[in-house]
Design a protein around this nucleic acid. Structure first.
Length: 596
RNA sequence: GCCGACGUAGCUCAAUCGGCAGAGCAACCGCCUUGUAAGUGGUAGGUUAUGGGUUCGAUUCCCAUCGUCGGCUCCA
């Protein structure tokens, strides 16, 4: 198989193939709906799409017909011909295509390219034609449609999408497809989709009895079952211990607070539509907390702080509620009630660089402990349009964040002007076992709250000074993090996180007492153990334990009972065989250390 | 919130044109007493998401609501 050298996706053959496939698809769709309007159709990661404005909704059957027609067009080996035209000519060609006309206006004014992205220089206007189909397009394309392998193209699904990504503009129909060099590559891609489905945390959450969402309770509100609760507890216990070692103090705060608090913090001004409606008690409005910061700020303010007290690090597993729009909820990954592993650092300006450096290291260490090895960080810098604090004030914290990243030696990129109004921040994404990226940690500098709550400390000089404040969440939210963990491990948690670490499998009923005796010994040694006393065959018990992804299966029959042993089977299928309880415990200690 | 699809037993899914709502797994009760991924017989399980409408008759057709899924927008 010929594979491209590492290069920009935009320069790759696949990019051309997919871009061309998008055109071919558009041709097929417009043949089906001659009165349909077409908009844009770029390549995307792993595929392409095209957005249409059509007289009716496309069905899965339509997709099959379109796909079939695409193969015919591909087989026609129609050449892609590029032509640079004037705006006037372009308007003539696309006179019945209002979306194209809008794009041409954008191109002519030099503001935007055909995808609505801002451009620096005035672009040329080009069209590409193959067969009967003409599209406004800057390319590039393959030479002819024959270079689109008909066995490596597949239309996947349709979805709604706003014109130019603007929810005030018309909703279009987007058709997603994928295209590869070979049918084998297509198969591999489809396998990846299947594998992602197999390890979907919503599915595993049910199969492994980890959590559920009840219609009776409400959407986006998670119920943790005993096993999921155990995993979460283990994760939290570990983090709490680390925080204690790391010089954090634990605080607790209520779930509601008076309107005035949220007015001062600015939340009511900026984010009211994302907050749950207030409760009214004794003439006072109380809001469910969407964030923990104002409470931690109040703890800071509960007494006069000396420069000697700083830094203060208040940590809380704080449960917050945010009203997320119904269409965005997704399993554990996007919910309405969740618990942040939140902390707020208050420090003197001179302590700030070290605090940031430490918290970044701390964060990476914790993420590594959960088995993540690859990180990508994003540094968001000041947006002059909306920023509390002056450009010069932003300099020190922005530099501190950058230096911490340099020292941490993880890859990062700078998102210019992407910071929130209250300060620069670092976001950290991890790569999971399937190569997908998830944003977990965030470290955010805050210019706003110390100001609006008028925080101060008494300096060495006896004067009041303003402390710096840093928000940080390492796992982000426990719900989301658990979702990521479940998918990362495909439900097969490492030994230290496994809700059940070992299951005793008696071969016949007469081995139950011995199994229980062993279980007690293991429990006494701190292992989380179950005994499968059901009247099932050993094979069935193994199958069930396997499906539950329990790390150690311990088979006990006559032989083991006589010799005082257990026969170990691993969920990998590996079968180390009989050993004493002592040997097993030794092995578990090693697996524990290894993080597995 | 928007576009589209969907909602039948705990789970996965059937039910022809509108005509008595079914299977496998799981659960429960037995029998078997088992050596590394499903032994076997039986029992029970349903206001077909909810509310309304059309019809002699609705799981099936229509409307609304709720929820789920795939996207879009959003994610402080």
């Amino acid at each position: 198989m010929v594979e491209n050298k590492p290069q920009r996706y935009e320069d790759s053959d696949l990019y051309r193939i997919r871009h061309s496939a998008a055109h071919v698809m558009a041709q097929a769709v417009l043949e089906m709906f001659p009165e349909g309007k077409y908009t844009i159709g770029p390549p995307i990661e792993d595929g392409f799409y095209y957005d249409f404005d059509l007289p009716r909704s496309l069905t899965p059957d339509d997709l099959e017909v379109i796909e079939k027609r695409m193969r015919q067009i591909a087989a026609g080996e129609h050449v892609f011909e590029k032509q640079v035209v004037s705006a006037e000519t372009a308007r003539q060609i696309f006179k019945d295509q209002p979306y194209k006309l809008e794009l041409i206006d954008g191109l002519e004014q030099g503001g935007f390219d055909e995808y609505g992205e801002p451009l620096d220089e005035l672009p040329e206007i080009s069209i590409y034609q193959h067969d009967t189909f003409v599209d406004l397009c800057r390319g590039p394309h393959v030479e002819n449609t024959g270079q689109i392998n008909p066995d490596a193209v597949k239309l996947l699904h349709t979805a709604g999408a706003y014109w130019r990504g603007d929810e005030n503009k018309p909703m279009l129909q987007r058709v997603y497809g994928t295209a590869w060099h070979s049918s084998q590559e297509l198969e591999e891609y489809l396998w990846r989709l299947e594998e992602a489905k197999r390890r979907d945390h919503r599915r595993l959450g049910r199969e492994l009895d980890l959590f559920s969402v009840s219609e009776e309770v409400g959407p986006g509100l998670i119920l943790w079952h005993p096993k999921g609760g155990m995993v979460r507890k283990l994760a939290e216990d570990f983090c709490r211990a680390e925080h204690e070692k790391g010089g954090y103090d634990f605080v607790y705060s209520p779930h509601i607070g008076k309107a005035n608090l949220w007015e001062t913090s600015g939340h009511l001004d900026w984010y009211e539509e994302n907050m749950y409606a207030p409760l009214e008690i004794e003439g006072q409005r109380y809001y469910l907390k969407p964030m923990n910061c104002p409470f931690h700020v109040q703890i800071y303010k509960s007494r006069i702080r000396s420069y000697r007290d700083l830094p203060l690090r208040f940590a809380e597993w704080g449960t917050v509620y945010r009203y997320e729009r119904s269409g965005v909820l997704h399993g554990l990954l996007r919910v309405r009630g969740f618990t942040q592993d939140d902390a707020h650092l208050f420090c003197r300006p001179d302590q700030m660089p070290e605090e940031i450096d430490e918290v970044l290291q701390f964060s990476l260490n914790i993420l590594r402990a959960f088995g993540f090895k690859e990180f990508q960080a994003y540094l968001s810098t000041r947006n002059p349009e909306k920023a509390a604090g002056s450009a010069s004030e932003w300099e020190a914290p922005t530099d501190a964040l950058r230096q911490a990243l340099d020292r941490a030696a993880i890859p990062y990129q700078i998102d210019e002007g992407e910071a929130t109004f209250y300060g620069p921040k670092i976001d950290i994404k991890v790569r999971d076992a399937l190569g997908r990226e998830w944003q977990l940690s965030t470290i955010q500098f805050d210019f706003n709250l110390p100001e609006s709550f008028d925080l101060s400390f008494i300096g060495e000089d006896g004067q009041e000074h303003r402390p710096y404040m840093i928000h940080r969440a390492l796992l982000g939210s426990m719900e989301r993090f658990m979702g990521v963990l479940i998918e990362h491990f495909a439900g097969a948690f490492p030994l230290w996180l496994a809700p059940v670490q070992a299951v005793l499998i008696p071969i016949a009923d007469r081995h139950n007492p011995y199994a229980n005796q062993v279980a007690q010994e293991l429990e006494a040694a701190g292992m989380r153990v179950q005994v499968d006393e059901r009247g099932e065959r050993m094979n069935a018990k193994i199958r069930d334990a396997q499906n539950q992804k329990i790390p150690y299966m311990l088979v006990v029959g006559d032989r083991e009972q006589e010799q005082g042993m257990v026969a170990l089977r691993l969920r990998s299928g590996e079968n180390p065989g009989p050993m004493t309880v002592e040997t097993l415990l030794e092995r578990s200690r090693q697996d524990y250390e290894a993080g597995d």
